[in-house]
């Protein structure tokens, strides 16, 4: 690990200001992804701003009946919060399908959103990777790409976003609140947080330099039947091959969002007006670019959709 200096921030804005003063700084919360990347020298911040002591660890109802989740709420606490279990079960399910209990006890809400891909070529510093080293090429394309993306990819990058939590938040139409170094606050739809790689896969979000996520807000409960189905190579503690957050609304309509397919949580609202499983799958998978290694993800996606429409819960 490269050397860095360390400071403990005491408010969100102070943290954002500190980030502005140290252009090579990183915020650290749970640290479960960042420290791993620092050990590999994939991330080499010169300064760490510890945001664990700035508050923002509460879950509270909003005036319009929604739920505001502080950026520092740990994954375990979010998954087991009574309000989430009762009214947003797809979010509990997605969180509990991710990582291990030890990691969920440490990992935070904002950190989960900002975690980086587990593409093996991003992690292997002896290989080219446009995300890790812009312009160096992509060793994943044509390499071992079985677990990589088929939607939203580019010639430069086929990495997936690894979060389960974010997939559930996408289907719930979550919004993300931030504070900038100058104190300016804004809210953006979760759908607008992550970028597609295009020619700049190193830019993963639309956050500006020093901008800090302070909370994630869920709209008022949708009700209905909510499931999170995750298909993976082993039954626990593995990233998704394909995952699906599905909600059958009280009026019978469906919503779907997918993980394991794309560089961001993948939702195609246009697919939700279709009622026949093949039509839904066709719209969700429109534009998919798969290889012989990843064709199976299309089959899995179609089967997950068909199962949800039939009322099943394929874990």
């Amino acid at each position: 690990m490269k050397a860095f200096t360390y400071e403990r921030a005491h408010s969100a804005q102070q943290a954002a200001r500190a980030a502005q003063q140290h252009p090579q700084a990183k915020f650290i919360a749970g640290g479960t992804n960042l420290l791993d990347l620092m050990k590999h020298q994939i991330e080499t911040p010169t300064h760490l701003i510890d945001v664990n002591h700035i508050g923002l660890d509460q879950i509270e109802k909003t005036p319009d009946g929604g739920l505001r989740i502080g950026a520092l709420v740990r994954n375990t606490d979010l998954a087991s919060h009574p309000e989430v279990r009762k009214n947003y079960p797809v979010l509990s399910r997605a969180l509990l399908a991710g990582a291990s209990a030890q990691l969920r006890n440490k990992a935070t809400t904002a950190g989960n959103l900002l975690q980086r891909t587990r593409c093996p070529y991003f992690y292997d510093t002896t290989k080219p990777c446009n995300k890790r080293k812009p312009g160096s090429g992509c060793a994943a394309i044509g390499g071992y790409e079985r677990n990589l993306a088929i939607l939203g990819t580019s010639e430069a990058c086929i990495a997936t976003h690894p979060s389960d939590m974010a997939v559930a938040m996408r289907v719930l139409d979550a919004t993300v609140q931030t504070v900038a170094p100058d104190g300016a606050r804004r809210s953006l739809a979760l759908a607008q947080l992550h970028r597609l790689p295009g020619q700049t896969p190193q830019l993963e979000t639309n956050l500006k330099a020093g901008e800090l996520i302070t909370s994630v807000t869920l709209p008022k409960p949708l009700g209905g039947r909510q499931t999170y189905s995750k298909v993976r190579d082993r039954a626990s503690y593995a990233f998704a091959a394909v995952s699906m957050a599905a909600i059958q609304m009280p009026d019978g309509r469906f919503r779907f969002a997918f993980g394991g397919l794309a560089p961001k949580p993948w939702r195609v609202e246009a697919a939700e007006s279709q009622s026949q499983p093949p039509a839904v799958a066709e719209v969700v998978l429109a534009g998919a670019r798969s290889s012989s290694q990843t064709d199976y993800k299309k089959t899995l996606t179609a089967r997950l959709i068909a199962s949800a429409l039939k009322g099943g819960n394929p874990l």
Binding site: F4, Q24, T44, T46, K127, P128
Partner: peptide, 24 residues
């Protein structure tokens, strides 16, 4: 690693080098 990947990865340019602080 360089022996294996030298044809694939270009050497970092000086502009990319970031001054790391001394251990604190």
């Amino acid at each position: 690693g360089g022996l294996v990947a030298s044809q694939l990865v270009s050497a970092p340019s000086p502009a990319e080098a970031v001054a790391q602080p001394t251990p604190a």
